[in-house]
Simulated scan of single mutants.
Amino acid sequence: MRVADVPDARITAPTDALVRVLLAGVCGSDLWMYRKMAPSERGFRMGHEFVGVVEEVGAEVTAVRPGQVVLAPFRWSDGTCEFCRAGLPTSCSNGGSWGGALDGGQGEAVRVPLADGTLVPVPVGPGDPRLVPVLALADVLCTGHHAARAARVGPGAAVAVIGDGAVGLCAVLAAARLGAERITVVGAHEDRLELARRFGATEVLKARGDAAARRLLELSEGRGYHAVLECVGTGTALRTALEAARPGGAVGYVGVPQDGEGVDVRTFFRRNVTLAGGITPARTYIPELLPDVLSGGVDPSPVFDRVVGLDELPEGYAAMDRREAVKTLVDLRR
């Protein structure tokens, strides 16, 4: 990981906006590339979570204007294609992802394609402390919400959350917001499990794999959970989730898949367990969740437990890789 100069971001199409970044986040999914990408002279521009100020807009942009604070979800989309209209902007016919050959969110400025369909104006100033929890809407808070929605969490539900990373912790917030009565979190780190309790978990369990599945069944008196939120992305985590779901229950699957090793489809076939989820349509969820974040009714900001400037970003990645930080916040206002 290195910080380098690249050509300045600039508008190249009438539907573009130029955004000066205020805050950016490092996602757990960024770590997969951090760990696995081969050394490269050119490198790959990183970052898909950012809030910033609009500096310039193209001639056809009408939804945002210069000087506005805006939030960018982790993919850009036109907001008008058949998939966007169906609530799946992550499958937009004309959309795409930040980074790579394009500008990444972990930089000073970003050219935002299809600005009208992508950017969300936020009615706060650049120095407002609420921008930190707003940043979580770019990805992790919406992803936790997607898991809860996919697993049909509602009032009175018994919910198990697999994973104590930022997404798992945000899934606790989401389940509590939707009225879950019981929330059991499976994780591996005492400090994160304590934060899960602060977010609304009623029980925490330090275990993994078969031991975690057995303990979840014991805690549910053998019945299993109405909803299980898989927030890791490994075959082990998915197996645990499927084993812990009760007959007729549901698994919300949002961990970025790394492997599916050992997952037996008969596990959920025999008990009529629904498996739903996938990549999160964050742009669809933001209007629903933003008012609660701005009011303080939902506060995911504690997941950002390491703050760095742009020049310190390599250490921010290293801290997350060493499990010394849940989620690194990059503050370009410093």
Rank of each mutant, 00 (worst) to 15 (best):
R198Y: 06
A115L: 07
A115R: 13
L195D: 07
G168Q: 05
V204S: 09
F83D: 08
P113Q: 00
C81Q: 09
A109H: 04
K206V: 08
E194F: 06
G179Q: 00
V140I: 13
L135W: 13
D103I: 04
A171M: 05
L131E: 06
V69T: 10
E194P: 04
A174W: 05
L141P: 06
A188D: 11
R149L: 15
L141F: 14
L195T: 04
G144I: 01
A157S: 15
A157C: 05
A175P: 08
V69P: 05
R198N: 11
A158T: 04
G156M: 12
L102E: 14
R75A: 10
A136E: 07
G156H: 02
A151R: 07
V172G: 08
R197G: 14
L88P: 00
G99N: 14
L169A: 01
E203N: 06
I162C: 07
E190S: 08
H146S: 13
L135F: 08
L119A: 04
P133E: 04
A175G: 00
L169T: 03
V132E: 09
R149N: 02
G96C: 13
C81L: 13
W98V: 11
V161W: 10
G209E: 13
R182C: 04
E190I: 07
A188G: 14
G165Y: 06
G79C: 01
A213Q: 07
A136H: 09
S77M: 02
H189G: 09
D210S: 15
W76I: 02
V134S: 09
A176R: 15
L193V: 14
V134G: 11
A180Q: 02
L135K: 07
D116H: 10
A171T: 01
A201V: 06
R75F: 11
V204A: 07
A180K: 12
D103S: 08
V159G: 12
W76H: 15
E108K: 13
W98P: 12
V69W: 00
D103T: 05
G165H: 08
V186T: 12
N94I: 03
P155M: 11
H145T: 05
A196C: 08
R75Q: 13
C84N: 03
E190P: 01
V120W: 13
